[in-house]
Design a binder for these strands. Structure first.
Lengths: 337, 337
DNA sequence: ATTCGTTGTCGAAGCGCTTCGACATCCTAT
DNA sequence: ATAGGATGTCGAAGCGCTTCGACAACGAAT
């Protein structure tokens, strides 16, 4: 293993000079810098992470806590994780992957040990038990998702309220009057993850303004669950012509079942989904959808943390405005409805 | 921040004693141990990760390199990643998340800086450019997937050759004679990731032994691509009654298209999938399938690394035997075929 | 009673880096 | 000519931990 001292010796300068070349924290003459850089290359030097962390009390690591359970749509989480990792590297940080399993202990461990300089938490619950710890630590931290109270915290999320409103507006504009919302699995609501409720609230209040009727049904993914849910919906509101789906694993079952029942999309019923573009495009009917800006959230989270670690930036909540992309699954409400 | 020295002072012992209590590397009297543990708890002490890494040249971190591209089925990757993270914590390790983006440089950086004690690489290509580096470093490392030559390396993977054979055997036993294989996207083959070819080889050679005809077609996911592929298959081999699908995002399109064409599953055609159980169960027809043992692979990888770091264990290749679960998508070949 | 091995504890020397103050050098403004 | 500020470099002091050798205390074996 090559050390700083060896590089210094090879370049004929002192260790501190090499350190300053590396960090740029003091000005170094061009000739010295080049000589040092040359030595670094020749010797294949890599600074030792532990020593660095110890001396500077900075690990250059950002911790990312992802939920263990997988009832949230996995590809979105993955996309966020990858965006976080990529953006972090861009700023010279690495990413530590934590699962939610340890719960608050993980927060304590990571902040206590100086393993990471900052944290990103995904899948935050409304009254998350990690929040008190986060509030009292001085370690920068960003939540992806919105807890009940955001005071003293930084959060990013899609504006799910606006998303719900946007979906219902789109359907209203097309003349639909009876809307059914296929929600997330009941477990998601019970866990109080917030985003599902926020969608529903936004959707409902806009629907009220527009004079639409809304029927909401949580739904597990898969065909059987969807079949049951759909049957109950048409039973209760036979005139339903608009669907808003907020559960990726219910999308395809819904389309298949509608097809099977002889209801054409978008001629007879319209479907708006809240899902990643890839799902919307790959579905059997190209779906009008509001995308979940996974990459943007991941990138923002990291950039905010980096800013904070650099002494810039402050706490704030960023709600990303939803964008609805019209594809082939929505059209005018049928005349008879 | 509480330090070892403070704990030592609080407990009335020397720093080294506290260290030995923590590591268990020397025997400590019960009374002293308890006193120290008490102090640790009272002060809320967490050992500093950087200092530890520096002094012991062990970071207690395992690096996990996941591919950046997402043409592999994401949930499987995620499942592996979570299994890795969970198992690692069980052994006192944390997981560093690296994307394939940096390529070989990431390997150099991580091994060079002592950031991680060991590495796990996913989505290894046959002639992966990271392999030479891995062979020459003395850092333990496990590949998930099989490169062209495994000498001097440890690898885990599903035995895809046996998987292909198993699928075709199952169909043969049911009387099917003409088999179509819906493969991964062409890009996967071009990248020489190996697993797709291995499946095909195993499948073909077993088919030859059993006297079956096999038609292989790569296929992008999604409906349009699948429709095209399916049309060409029936065009070329109208008597096809058995399908083997190795592309998760082609599964549902295939089922929908078959249904649409009036071909009943499993009465007219049988479908075997190579996919996670969750996909098999949630599909519109519960699929007979060979599962990808994501958790097992992740767990094995970590456990092997831990063993190696403890001075146990050696290089070896573990091919996990496939298991076929019969569900509702396969049945006897129709009489007329 | 002396020697020996055990067991439990301590002190001190680093691990490789960052960073602060000191200092030498050179240039500019008086 | 000289004080004063830049500018570039160095030495040394840690950062908090692990680990090695030393050693005191004690019981067991001679």
């Amino acid at each position: 293993m090559v050390t700083l001292a060896e590089v210094a010796q090879h370049a004929g300068v002192s260790a501190s000079t090499v350190s300053y070349v590396l960090s740029g924290k003091r000005s170094i003459s061009t000739t010295t810098r080049q000589r040092v850089e040359q030595s670094i290359r020749e010797l294949g030097y890599h600074p030792n992470a532990g020593a660095r962390a110890l001396a500077s009390s900075r690990s250059n690591i950002i911790a990312l806590m992802i939920p263990l359970r997988t009832d949230m749509y996995v590809p979105v989480m993955m996309e966020i994780a990858i965006a976080v990792a990529t953006t972090a590297r861009l700023h010279g940080y690495d990413v530590l992957l934590l699962t939610g399993e340890e719960g608050p202990d993980a927060v304590r461990r990571v902040t206590g040990s100086g393993l990471a300089d900052a944290m990103i938490l995904m899948d935050v619950e409304l009254e998350d038990e990690r929040l008190p710890l986060l509030r009292q630590t001085d370690q920068p931290c960003v939540l992806i998702g919105l807890p009940a109270s955001t005071s003293g915290l930084t959060c990013v999320d899609l504006d799910f309220g606006a998303t719900g409103a946007l979906c219902v507006e789109h359907l209203a504009k097309l003349g639909h009057r009876d809307i059914a919302v296929i929600g997330e699995a009941p477990a998601v609501y019970e866990r109080h993850t917030g985003f599902a409720e926020r969608t529903l609230d936004g959707l409902r209040s806009r629907a009220r303004e527009l004079g639409l009727r809304v029927l909401h049904r949580p739904c597990e993914g898969g065909y059987d669950a969807m079949a049951l849910t759909l049957a109950r919906i048409f039973d209760e509101r036979p005139g339903t012509t608009g669907f808003v789906v907020q559960n990726e694993s219910a999308v395809e079952p819904l389309l298949a079942l509608l097809r099977q029942q002889g209801r054409a999309v978008p001629e007879d019923v319209s479907v708006v989904a809240i899902c990643p573009d890839q799902v919307a495009v790959q579905a059997s009917v190209r779906l009008t959808s509001v995308a979940i800006p996974a990459q943007e959230m991941g990138r923002y989270a990291v950039e905010h943390l980096v800013a904070k670690l650099d002494g810039r930036g402050s706490d704030e909540v960023l709600l990303i405005a939803p964008e609805l992309t019209v594809r082939a699954s929505t059209g005018p409400a049928p005349a008879g409805s």
